[in-house]
Simulated assay, not measured.
Amino acid sequence: MNLALWLVAGLLAVVALAGGAIKALTPKEKLAATPGGAWTRSVSAGGVKALGVLEILAAAGFTLPAATGIAPVLVPVTALCWTALMAGAMITHGRRGELRFAALNLAYLALAVFVAWGRFGRGTFTG
């Protein structure tokens, strides 16, 4: 169980880091032209970059607390925050009719729920 939780948290960290870096470093106009990026047209450039920074922080929160042993409870807290972020992404893509992106967000949400459930429950780092 512990290995599965580590693998899922690692996968989510990679997803969060990649998505966050793209949002934080790519100009909004270029993002808007990519598949699934049209939502950026209705958000300020600062808003897009802020989401990118949140995703980068999520990548750190999925891995660093457990790897360092410093406040490992932040891993499931990060997973809960990620579920909220993915719920918002699902709603945004769903309203735009981008169902494949909404489904991908649902998959990420489900993985984060697994991490939160496992790390708050049976797969805690302390016992």
Rank of each mutant, 00 (worst) to 15 (best):
I56W: 00
R41H: 11
L109E: 05
A50L: 15
C81Q: 12
P72K: 11
F62R: 04
E55K: 03
T78V: 09
G61L: 01
G61W: 02
R96G: 09
M86L: 11
A60P: 08
T83V: 15
K30S: 15
Y108L: 15
A38L: 06
E55T: 03
M90G: 12
P76N: 10
T34G: 13
P35Q: 10
R96E: 10
F62L: 01
G88S: 11
T40Q: 06
T68V: 11
R96D: 06
A50N: 12
L54H: 02
R95Y: 08
L104E: 03
V73H: 12
T63G: 01
V43F: 05
A87D: 01
V77F: 08
K49P: 07
L106E: 06
H93Y: 10
V73W: 14
A60Q: 06
P35F: 09
L54P: 02
P72L: 11
G52C: 00
I70D: 05
K49G: 01
M86N: 09
A45C: 06
A33T: 11
A50E: 08
A67P: 12
V48M: 07
A60N: 05
K23W: 00
M86P: 05
K30F: 05
M90K: 03
A58R: 01
A107G: 14
A59C: 08
A50Y: 08
A58E: 08
G37M: 04
A32F: 03
P72G: 10
A87N: 02
T34V: 13
A79F: 00
G47C: 08
A32H: 03
R100L: 13
C81V: 15
L109S: 13
S42K: 14
A107S: 13
